[in-house]
Write a protein that binds this DNA or RNA. Sequence first.
DNA 1: ACCGGTCACGTGACCGGTCACGGAGAGTGT
DNA 2: ACACTCTCCGTGACCGGTCACGTGACCGGT
Lengths: 323, 323
Amino acid sequence: MAGKRVTIRDVAISAGVSYQTVSRALNDKPEIDATTKERVLDAARELGFRPSRFARALVRQDTTSVGLVIPDLLNPFFTEVASAALEAARKRGWHVVVYDTAGDGEQELGTLEVIGSQVDAIVGYLNAPADVVARYTGGIPVVYIGRESAGASFGSIRVDGEAGIHAAVAHLVAGGRCRIGMLDHEHAAPSARSRWYLDALRSHGLSGWVLGAGQSVEGGEIGVAALLDAHPDLDGLLTYNDVIAIGAVRRARMLGRRVPQDCAVIGFDGVQIGSLVEPPLSTVRIDTRQLGALAVEQVATLLAGATPEVTTITGTLVLRGTA
Amino acid sequence: MAGKRVTIRDVAISAGVSYQTVSRALNDKPEIDATTKERVLDAARELGFRPSRFARALVRQDTTSVGLVIPDLLNPFFTEVASAALEAARKRGWHVVVYDTAGDGEQELGTLEVIGSQVDAIVGYLNAPADVVARYTGGIPVVYIGRESAGASFGSIRVDGEAGIHAAVAHLVAGGRCRIGMLDHEHAAPSARSRWYLDALRSHGLSGWVLGAGQSVEGGEIGVAALLDAHPDLDGLLTYNDVIAIGAVRRARMLGRRVPQDCAVIGFDGVQIGSLVEPPLSTVRIDTRQLGALAVEQVATLLAGATPEVTTITGTLVLRGTA
DNA sequence: ACCGGTCACGTGACCGGTCACGGAGAGTGT
DNA sequence: ACACTCTCCGTGACCGGTCACGTGACCGGT
């Protein structure tokens, strides 16, 4: 039992034929006698033979698998993207290997290195700069999700929230609010979303405050507490994503703010659970299913040898309960 | 550009060495001159050479990848399990290929067939009976999640919610409730959870009603509407999972029931978002991280040749807002 | 009895790498 | 100048399959 792998030749000698015949039997090739085929199949079953996927894939180079790299599968936005990508990949008969980097830059690079020799292409929400990624992945097609500057050598799905965020700010201002803050992500460089926010404020003659927050409910709770501490009269809040917004709404209410009356909140992403919390979250919605599908589509074009392109997906303001 | 794949031998002739030397250079083997190595690496880079993962894996049979089959990645319970499994697999250096069967039995079998020749083991929340699964997977190790009867030839993580559901019913009864319904899943066979529910009711001298519901928020909404229609004086509700419960709470409130005053609701799974909805969902909590970790662990033991076992993970009642 | 045509099966090459050898050339000691 | 090591690199086999051929048995037709 501890023994070696049972190969096609073991089956062959057990059935008293050549290994080529075994291959024929297993692959439903026509040029084989029915009884022989039966005998071979029996032998294979008896020995518990399983063809090596590597050997098989080596010769007929068909199986493609793409690596999906995301920072946090527990963030519903990424879950939705992953789900959509999975579905799109299934339609093409591709396999999707999922990697969760836990938002950790080091793990991201480690993942890219491992993955680079294990998949045919990579789709991911990557933080590392393009040249670093290129070095780690060794030249396989890469499609970025949600980055502004993708670099010329990669495919990219750009998330354009400019119009959505401008609309969001305009809505808040129209509601008479003028002390509007933002909880951004925590990375060194401020996000494009925060720039859009500042732009929008400026166009209304306002200024605001941007504070970094962890990308989790708890991060939103901590962030909003800090923001309210510094600016107790905050009457509007935008967030980097919905998860942060949900945390922010919770904590704001615990701190005695009525949402949306005292302080309106608008998230970003448009995840499903946003509509389940109380009050339902207003947000700039991204079509995650389309996003996932587009990413897979780009992989397909890159794999076919096309030059990388940038597809843009646009967020739209969805007003529910919190604003 | 449209040409063939660039192999190790192309690199070899380009660098003016034998292909063995190329292999040495790429794998950081010691027996190679530094300058030669550099030259080879340059040539490889120039040609855009990428080693074939299949050829490599074929000879040193180390890379293991497990297939994770789940019915619906958008259901947060499965997301949490997947996340935990991903993390556990990463620790072992395994790759995880994720498949979403969309709760469809046909797709499940199709997936198993494809996957069977693409991964070394399967972990999954499978519906098909054991013998069918065995036929489709062709004998590779399989670990079931959340099934009562696993069959002797598979590993299995059993979800034991008996104590939790009994506690849930006891709590409802202690609160003076005696018209307690349940929204089960929709499959042909009633779930173990519904049996536990009926058992628990019986032990209190009560009887109840079980209704199948789709495993989604919407399913819960529809289900509770039907249940309230048939039994307007329903004062307690258990559900197959939290997602259904969330839908049930929403619709129940829309139908004028106060939760928990008029009708208490207790879900199952203990997903994170349960604590974010309003009111926070009471539930029978399963430790999803442990579940995922245990599944991977079982795969490891099966891969090592051990005989399949059954591990049990026990749910505990968590009382929050809805009961 | 001879011949061409199927049918069933075996032989050899190949997919793209890795590994165990063996051998050439340079460097040492005497 | 000799043998002897050591370093560096090439040759051959192999991993476990698939595919393009080649070959022998069997068939009916003349």
